[in-house]
Each structure stands twice: as structure tokens, then as C-alpha cells.
């Protein structure tokens, strides 16, 4: 729970910043710089996320130790959990960047984001761990990127055996690569739209 909540809260709502930039025209200032707007935004929000993640995880781990009276994970599992958590945040940031860009087409991205967020809560394992789902539903959930954002790092807290950790991280890396490619395409499409229609 500490891991899933900290990922979801640490990333926050960067889509709102991008949406706001598009709606207000402020994105023009970003597009005029020599650094691509998408990269600058990701860099800014990665910094914000890391900062919040440190604070949230410190508080979460302290609460976990206090409530259970024991260390929440074995030291050997920590590197895999850390990497998985960072990958989860990166996937979530890429998703949110795309939702922000959606404002270029649909005006407000909030309705799309609302649907996506509810799917994340259900298929990502925030409401209930995916291990408690019926097998067919669990199989579907694990095949989506939602599980890669929440369930993946949380599941390593319970079982970080090398083979399972490697499979989890590879799955996350595949989703990250796919999302990065999709974000690149959306970024190009948005830039073309701005170039033709203005910002």
C-alpha cells in the first residue's frame, strides 16, 4: 500500500500543467526554446516526482515499521523495488504528458484523465491487490500498463525473487518503451497542429 499510494501521489497531476499551457497559450514560450517542450516538461516533473517520492516513502516506511514492528522488506529486495518504483513513475509521467497534449484536440483533458484514473485504480491494484482478483480478471489487468504503474513495484515488496523481479522489470521496460514511442508520436502530432493552427 505504501508503494502504490506513494507512486500515485508522488506523480501528481502534471497533465494539468500541460493542459493549462495549451489552453492559455503559455506553451508558445516553451516551444520557442531550443529544448523540446516535452523533454523540458518531463524533466521538471521528474524532479517534482522524485522529491515527493522521497518524502512519501520515508513517511510510509516509518509508518509501516511502526505498525508491524518489523522491516517491511529484506535489504536484497530494495534495489529491485526502487528501480520498479522509478519505472512506474516514468510510465505514469508519460501517460500524463499525453493526456495534457490531448487538450490540443479536445480542449479539456480532464474527462479522459478521469476515466484513465479509474481504470488505474481498478486494473492497477490500488483498490484491491491484483492477487485477490479472479484469475481471468487478474490476467487481463496484468496485461495492461496499469499494472506496470502500481501493482508491479508493490508486488516486489511481497516477492522479489530474482526471476520474478527480472520479469517485472522487463515488463515495465517494455511498457516504458511503448509509452515513450507513443508520447513521441503525440508530441509530433501536437507540434504539427500548433504549427498549422497556432497556439
Amino acid at each position: 500500500m505504501v508503494v502504490t499510494e506513494s507512486v500515485a501521489i508522488a506523480v501528481g497531476y502534471p497533465y494539468r500543467a500541460v493542459e493549462g499551457d495549451i489552453q492559455s497559450g503559455q506553451i508558445a514560450a516553451g516551444l520557442m526554446r531550443p529544448l523540446p517542450y516535452a523533454l523540458a516538461t518531463l524533466a521538471e516533473w521528474s524532479g517534482n516526482t522524485l522529491h515527493r517520492l522521497l518524502v512519501l516513502d520515508a513517511a510510509g516506511i516509518a509508518a509501516g515499521v511502526w505498525l508491524t514492528g518489523m522491516a517491511p522488506v529484506s535489504p536484497a529486495a530494495i534495489p529491485a523495488i526502487l528501480i520498479s518504483t522509478l519505472l512506474a513513475c516514468a510510465i505514469m509521467l508519460l501517460f500524463q504528458l499525453q493526456f495534457g497534449y490531448a487538450a490540443a484536440w479536445v480542449g479539456s483533458a480532464a474527462p479522459l484523465f478521469w476515466i484513465w484514473q479509474k481504470l488505474l485504480f481498478v486494473l492497477g491494484g490500488l483498490i484491491l491487490p491484483l492477487t485477490l482478483y479472479p484469475q481471468p480478471l487478474r490476467a487481463v489487468a496484468e496485461a495492461t500498463p496499469f499494472a506496470a504503474m502500481l501493482f508491479a513495484p508493490a508486488s516486489l515488496v511481497l516477492d522479489a525473487a530474482p526471476a520474478r523481479a527480472a520479469a517485472t522489470l522487463v515488463s515495465q521496460l517494455i511498457w516504458l518503451a511503448l509509452l515513450a514511442a507513443a508520447t513521441f508520436l503525440v508530441d509530433r502530432a501536437a507540434a504539427s497542429r500548433f504549427a498549422e493552427r497556432g497556439v
Binding site: 497559450g25 503559455q26 514560450a29 520557442m32 526554446r33 531550443p34 521538471e44 504549427a195
Partner: peptide, 23 residues
């Protein structure tokens, strides 16, 4: 400009009165 935007960005400065480039 529309073909060499990145190179051009190093050679121009832009101020839009209503839009900020500061954090």
C-alpha cells in the same frame, strides 16, 4: 524559422508580455 527552429532559438530572444518564461 520553421525549418531551423532549434538553431534559431539560440540567436533570438522573445518576450511575450502576457506569457512568462520564468519558473
Amino acid at each position: 524559422p520553421w525549418r531551423q527552429r532549434r538553431q534559431l532559438a539560440h540567436r533570438i530572444g522573445i518576450v511575450f508580455g502576457q506569457r512568462s518564461q520564468l519558473w
